[in-house]
Design a protein around this nucleic acid. Structure first.
Lengths: 147, 147
DNA sequence: GTATTTTAATTTGCACGCAAAGTATTTGCA
DNA sequence: TGCAAATACTTTGCGTGCAAATTAAAATAC
């Protein structure tokens, strides 16, 4: 029965699509309160961990597309969250610097994970860890250079 | 340590974001061969299962946003994959009808799941089922009306 | 020491995803 | 019957995600 696989219900891809969209939607409202979109929030989390990094490094950490990232950083610069400056050592590279308000925003963002977590009634930490591990496998398999 | 949760590495949301993007990217090339985008493929799968359904029903099955779906169906109509006609019984509703070529495309799409599956070296069927179940919980929790 | 290649980032064009506003129909109800 | 509310879609505006083309600077080759 070669067509069974085309059933939407059985498709990992479709379930991931729905789950990812659901998560982004769930974050939308809390993030709107601190005037961030979801990818912008990802960028902020990366920079709160480590500031003064190049765009290439930021792409590596966030997995956001380079082309998109240029636009996202432009918007975030307009919001005075950060600035993008040329690396003196290598003029091709750009260094990203959080502004004071960009750093300060971390305080306001501190309870966002909690707001989301409280929605998860069916998922305890162990299940979450298991899910993380499974997703890592998916990501790894799909990004292997072999194929 | 209230800020630990802001670490990107520990974020289920970010891992889902990456996994979902990886999957969509993986499908891009195979789907391009049959001239479909990923959401269009989801629509086709839904219609291959059941034709002659309303847009509301299609939204329910695919979880694609209604506004986006209107545009997607317009593009698919231009490609002669389907047509959207008014429901005689209720003129507000629209019925979607696969064209002959839309139905025939199922044959060409039959081996796409296999092309993707062969990329999964770390994920056997049991793991996939477990992952599906976990994602269902995520989706369910996030879409509960009780926040 | 200049030409070629590589690396880093930007730009462009297209297709969504989503909220909010708008447009028809139909239903419910006084 | 007539009119407000509900339903089913469509439109609009913004922010990505992505491939492909472009620009600029550094590394390498010759």
């Amino acid at each position: 029965m070669p067509f069974e696989q085309l059933k939407l219900e059985n498709q990992l891809c479709h379930r991931l699509y729905m789950a990812s969209n659901s998560i982004t939607r769930a974050y939308r409202e809390p993030l709107a309160k601190i005037n961030l979109t979801y990818p912008q929030y990802i960028v902020m989390m990366a920079l709160w961990e480590q500031d003064q990094i190049t765009i290439a490094k930021l792409i590596e950490k966030t997995a956001i597309d380079g082309g998109a990232l240029t636009q996202i950083l432009k918007k975030m610069t307009e919001k005075k969250l950060l600035s993008v400056v040329k690396d003196k050592q290598d003029q091709r590279k750009r260094l990203i610097q959080l502004s004071t308000s960009g750093q300060a925003l971390k305080l306001n963002a501190a309870d966002i994970p909690k707001q989301i977590h409280c929605k998860f009634e069916s998922i305890d930490s162990e299940k979450a860890l298991q899910l993380l591990a499974s997703l890592d496998l998916v990501i790894k398999d799909l990004n292997e250079p072999t194929q």
